[in-house]
Design a protein around this nucleic acid. Structure first.
Lengths: 219, 219
DNA sequence: AAAATTATTTAGGCTTGCCTAAAAATATAT
DNA sequence: ATATATTTTTAGGCAAGCCTAAATAATTTT
């Protein structure tokens, strides 16, 4: 049996893995989980007992095969639940994270599978992050930011790179959400702000906003 | 902050309250939660500190106003989630309990409300139990078993009193589910079997089946 | 009403997951 | 290469929730 705390450690290690890659230090984990390095060392030992991580004293941690599988399952659940909350229950982007953080620990394979089916096997969560498949594959996404788009190109909003409430609320106001169609009309060279169309409706956004919006190019 | 364990104690006290009524002994709670009486005493003290129960040494426990509110909220969540699992995710009646037992502890008022809305404000869960309202009202149900129905009366299936897979599968085959309309055509006095109509379709069922089906009389 | 039984509480221990402070290992600077 | 700084681990403690065994209160029997 794997405890809630253990699941959170695995998740933390995976998330560090996914962006900074390779071997993870106890300090990094402590930062992510907002706990002490001493607690991390202690827990890492337990995870090693259970063969969920590979650990060499003073050298850092990596996920074992089974640990990685477990961590990806949690990530999958997290992103499926976020999708459920937004698509079915009408939550806003900015509201789903904490609730999904709880829901991701519900232990029922059947539930996860049926939820996936119910949501029609979504590939991306409301933040544009890929949802791991049932077999644990995380399809890599090659996304660019809106600020990198060239004038006259079209794309689809895939997510955001900033998890700030004010920012997300502003996007809601602009009617920007996952899957929205976007077209770049003009770039103002002076301040790098952009005139765009969201679902054919013209808007004008600053560079600060544009650089935190992730796009999949379609033309 | 109320812990998972505390929630389970409150729920246990409420459930004893709902059927045997009145004051609850530590032993009864211990039985329901499958724990020791000593542990119960200990926890009850903590719940008293938090004003969630009223407790006199050696005299038993009752829920305080706030404790009762809290317990009903958990019950509400449990029954809403069961409804979700059956109605939306296509779980069978017999499969939902354990998962709902986990889901009921997710702490988000907003989630509960939105789920309620999504399910279209159901009044009964898949077992025919009433779902407490947002303000904590549990509408009492006066249900009888199908075997108690008189000939020519009509009713609505409210649930079952037996959680057996074979039984439930048989009901599915007969097209009997929550909300189905039922009419009693004839009772065979010899073996107390019954001719009925489920949604206007004639069937013949044994007493063993009839006595495990719960009905709300409508005419 | 005293004795016996049963229910409840107290006492002392255990595990999990956290903490801080100190020690040890590693990395960095001189 | 040695001294200093940083990172990591060890050591010792604490709260939550559980346990068993023993003590005490309440109830039932005789």
């Amino acid at each position: 049996m794997i405890t809630l705390s253990e699941e959170n450690y695995l998740k933390a290690i995976l998330s560090i893995n996914l962006d900074t890659k390779a071997i993870v230090s106890t300090n990094e984990i402590a930062n992510v989980l907002d706990t002490s390095a001493a607690s991390v060392t202690e827990m890492i030992k337990k995870l090693q007992e259970k063969k969920l991580v590979i650990y060499k004293k003073y050298k850092g941690v990596t996920l074992s095969k089974s640990g990685c599988k477990k961590a990806i399952e949690i990530l999958r659940k997290h992103r499926l639940w976020e999708t459920f909350l937004v698509n079915k229950l009408d939550f806003k982007w900015s509201e789903v994270h904490d609730v999904a953080e709880e829901l991701e620990h519900i232990k029922s394979q059947k539930l996860t599978d049926k939820l996936d089916h119910f949501l029609n096997y979504p590939k991306f969560d409301p933040h544009g992050e890929p949802i791991p498949t049932k077999n644990g594959i995380i399809h890599p996404t090659k996304r660019i930011t809106l600020s990198e788009m060239v004038v006259n190109s079209n794309g689809i909003i895939m997510g955001v790179s900033l998890d700030d409430k004010e920012f997300l609320d502003y996007l809601t106001k602009l009617n920007i959400s996952i899957g929205s169609n976007i077209e770049v009309i003009e770039r103002i060279t002076f301040d790098q702000s952009m005139k765009i169309k969201i679902e054919c409706k013209p808007e004008h956004i600053s560079q600060d906003v544009a650089k935190n919006i992730l796009i999949k190019i379609i033309k």
